[in-house]
């Protein structure tokens, strides 16, 4: 499912908002979630899951072309942990 399909499916599930508004809303939700993560925040959606940052320590890397060692600085990466309802529903689909 892509973002535009998500917008379409949400539009089919309700009858009062024009598709244009749903498109704006979906984009705003994703933008706001990104903003929160980009400023070091957490997101907790019950039954869906939580998003947080994981820290990766600095390490020595290599330029694969020249073989030269380069120091890679520490960084944060986004992490998603599925919630219980999500885990159960997805796992249930394995049995069908």
């Amino acid at each position: 499912m892509t973002k535009s399909e998500l917008i379409e499916y949400i539009a089919e599930k309700q009858d009062h908002l024009p598709v244009k508004d749903i498109e704006l809303a979906v984009k705003l939700i994703l933008e706001h979630m990104s903003d929160v993560l980009a400023t070091g925040g957490r997101i907790e959606i019950r039954g869906f899951g939580s998003f947080s940052l994981h820290y990766r320590a600095p390490r020595m890397g290599r330029n694969p072309k020249t073989g030269a060692t380069v120091e890679l600085p520490g960084k944060h990466v986004p992490h998603f942990k599925p919630g219980k309802e999500m885990r159960d529903r997805v796992n249930e689909s394995l049995k069908s």
């Binding site: 980009a38 400023t39 899951g49 944060h76 990466v77 986004p78 998603f80 999500m86 997805v90 796992n91």
Partner: peptide, 24 residues
Amino acid sequence: RVVTFRPGQKLKARVEAYAGTESQ
């Protein structure tokens, strides 16, 4: 069956730039 999340380039780049504490 499990769900995994792979952040996109744009989100990864934005989060990488976050220089806050290494907790969480």
